[in-house]
């Protein structure tokens, strides 16, 4: 009891201190820890959400860039293939055109030749006919004075036959 008295222990004061601390504890728990911890949790959640969204955006960006690269590569390949195909077609067309032109030239040449030969023949025929006419006229003029009318006819007929034969 002497020790208790020396230390100033007093049940009423002890109870007052206990009640006082319990009030402080309640106030701190209700009005300090609760709002602060809620705010910290909310902020932590916001930060985590932000980081998650940033990570998602980064992955999406990476995926998009990858897709862009693939699309570009595919387009390049397609363009190259198209270019190759076009070149091939061009070469084929050139070859075909050359062949066609060659054929056409040959045909034109052949036509021209046949036309020339035909015209030559016709000219020859006309020339032959003309010569025949001239020959007959010449013969008429030269033979008419020497032989009679009948003989003249026979000579003429023979000469015509010879001329015709030659002309043919």
């Amino acid at each position: 009891m002497e020790i208790i008295k020396n230390f100033g222990l007093n049940p009423v004061l002890l109870a007052a201190q206990v009640i006082n601390f319990l009030i402080v504890f309640y106030v701190l728990k209700r009005f300090l820890y609760k709002p602060i911890l809620s705010m910290l949790k909310a902020r932590d959640k916001t930060i985590k959400d932000g980081l998650r969204q940033a990570e998602e955006a980064r992955l999406l960006l990476e995926k998009t860039a990858q897709r862009e690269r693939e699309t570009l590569k595919k387009a390049q390949n397609e363009a190259r293939a198209l270019l190759d195909e076009t070149r091939k077609q061009r070469d084929e067309l050139i070859v075909l055109a050359e062949q066609e032109a060659k054929k056409q030239a040959e045909r034109i040449l052949s036509d021209a030749r046949s036309q020339i030969s035909q015209e030559t023949r016709e000219a020859e025929k006309r020339l032959s006919a003309h010569i025949s006419d001239l020959a007959i006229q010449l013969l008429n003029q030269s033979v008419g004075d020497l032989v009679g009318k009948e003989q003249q006819e026979v000579v003429m007929q023979q000469a015509l036959k010879k001329i015709k034969r030659k002309a043919d």
């Binding site: 100033g8 222990l9 002890l14 201190q17 206990v18 601390f21 319990l22």
Partner: peptide, 12 residues
């Protein structure tokens, strides 16, 4: 520095 308080806190 008062044992009433420290003892009270310990009891709590």
């Amino acid at each position: 520095s008062d044992l009433n308080l420290t003892l009270g806190l310990s009891l709590i």
